[in-house]
Amino acid sequence: MIRCDEVTKIFRKNGSEVTSLDRFTAKVADGEFVAVRGPSGSGKTTLLLTLGGMQRPSAGSVHLAGRDLYALSPAERARLRSSEIGFVFQMFHLVPYLDLLANVLLACPGEPSAEVRQRAGRLMDELGLADRASHRPGELSAGERQRLAVARALLNRPKLILADEPTGNLDPENAAEVIRHLTEFHRGGGTVVLVTHGTVTDAHADRTLRLEQGRLVDN
């Protein structure tokens, strides 16, 4: 599913260089649930955004489903993200002025068909948000917001979910709920890469990678 070869990302700020990823090399198989652990500033989020085609590495290559991600044009990468990748972020990143259903449907490329709307409704139902469809994100609890973000990530039946600290802002009960949904997606054949600095996912992940100062120290 994913192959990273010597991926390096260097940020330049105020004349100095910070290496966020340092020759990161790893593979994630189809249908695998991989947790990426590491302390703050270890490059976890950079890795996730690079895997998602959101951040071009300074060196190295990322292959997704056999395609060299950064050899694609920005438009092709955007299409790939839309069709094959679902994102879940720690801060949810919901659009505050759209109702919940519209937030889920935002993932749909173009005008959503009746079938897509039905699917969005079903997902909201499965995630316990069906009766809040016309509410706005500001009216939800943190747990509900993250479940909404999961519903949005799942709408296009992605092959891969990239989750960045999805439980970081949640209480244990809601964190477990979100992990349960990601696990269900994984059981259905989906690939999950989840970055975290905690251990909450250890029991669910097939494998855990450890990052320190941008380097893979444990695979």
Binding site: M54, A78, L80, F89, H93, L94, L106
Partner: peptide, 14 residues
């Protein structure tokens, strides 16, 4: 900015 970021992440073009 965050909204723009998530729209990009969801595959919306420029």
């Amino acid at each position: 900015r965050q909204e723009i970021g998530i729209l990009r992440a969801l595959g919306k073009g420029g």
